[in-house]
Computed example of a mutant assay.
Amino acid sequence: MSDSECTMLEADVEDKAMDAAAPFDRPDADMILRTCDNVDFRYYKFLLSLASPFFMNMFALPQPTELASDQTKYGLPIIPVSESSRVMEKLLMFCSPVYDTDVPALDNLDIVMAVLDAADKYDMKRVGKFVVKMIISPHFLEPEPMRVFAITCRYRSEVETRVAARYMLRYAISEPSYVAELDCISGGDYHRLVKYHAKCGQAVPQLINLWSKYPLPQLDCKACRKKGISRLPLKEYQDSVIEALRARPCAETLLNQDWIDAMVKKAGSCTNCRDRAYRNMADFVKEFAEPVDNIISQIELEVKF
């Protein structure tokens, strides 16, 4: 159940509320957080105060000496929250002392955003920083790099934003489609990404000076040459590599199957050459990645956080 779908029950809330599973069912807890989908999390005011100035200030206020029956459970005060049980579970696990060795799993960027929004709401800055560091893993970057970039920008995480921007070089700047998280960053943030991408592409022609040291792999085979098929001129081959890297300035570009197929077709190679060309290019990229990385590493994304 998403937070937007949650509705607070107005009657028989206590009877219908479920207890959260361990470790949020401890009998020595001193308060209960009740989520919008009616799950009760027993927790500790002290730990919540350490993690959240919001709750620290709440607990510092004078508390009523008596509470109505629907405001307590197991003799503990109930604090209603608007988050779902799924989000609250993740959030409290990050606040618990054990999370340094047992990091909560975040399956996708939707739950990441929900946890970050909750951390932001309750002023849990340490939790927010930790979650943002997690999303630059390949698990999140590979399927949704633009969302990761926008999220790291939104939370002004410089190191993580640079990592996400570097990963975006695997795509032409116009390729990633719109994502809702872009609405949460400034036009300046996005402009700096576009500028960084362009500068990396403009630096790629420096590789022209390295062809003697890194000769491109052949695109055809002996069978092709025996048939007298004309080979792709070396200069055209080299220019095609530079053109591809200008659009997507990273070594992984040369492993794009569509691009390799196009090169094999230009070379007039036989149908057996495609797999061979890919293997040859993969071996080539292992060595060629170093000079490409050296050139790109000299260019930094401008950040104004």
Score class of each variant (00 low, 15 high):
E5P: 02
T7L: 12
L9G: 07
V13L: 10
E14T: 08
A22D: 04
F24R: 02
P27D: 15
D30L: 01
D30N: 01
V39P: 07
D40Y: 07
F41H: 00
L50I: 13
A51D: 02
P53D: 07
P64I: 10
E66F: 08
I79F: 02
S82W: 08
E83V: 03
F94W: 08
D102Y: 05
V103M: 13
D107W: 07
D110H: 13
D110C: 07
A118I: 02
K125M: 05
K125S: 11
K133T: 12
I136Q: 05
H139Y: 13
F149E: 00
E160L: 01
V163I: 14
V163P: 04
R166L: 11
M168C: 06
R170W: 06
I173R: 06
E175M: 13
A180N: 14
C184E: 15
C184M: 15
G188Q: 15
Q202A: 14
D220T: 12
C224A: 15
L234T: 15
C250V: 13
A251P: 06
W259P: 04
V264T: 01
K266F: 00
A267R: 06
C270E: 09
R274N: 04
A277L: 09
A277K: 05
Y278N: 00
N280F: 08
D283F: 13
F284A: 06
V285G: 05
V285D: 00
F288C: 06
F288S: 06
A289R: 13
A289D: 05
Q298P: 04
E302P: 00
E302I: 14
V303T: 11
F305A: 11
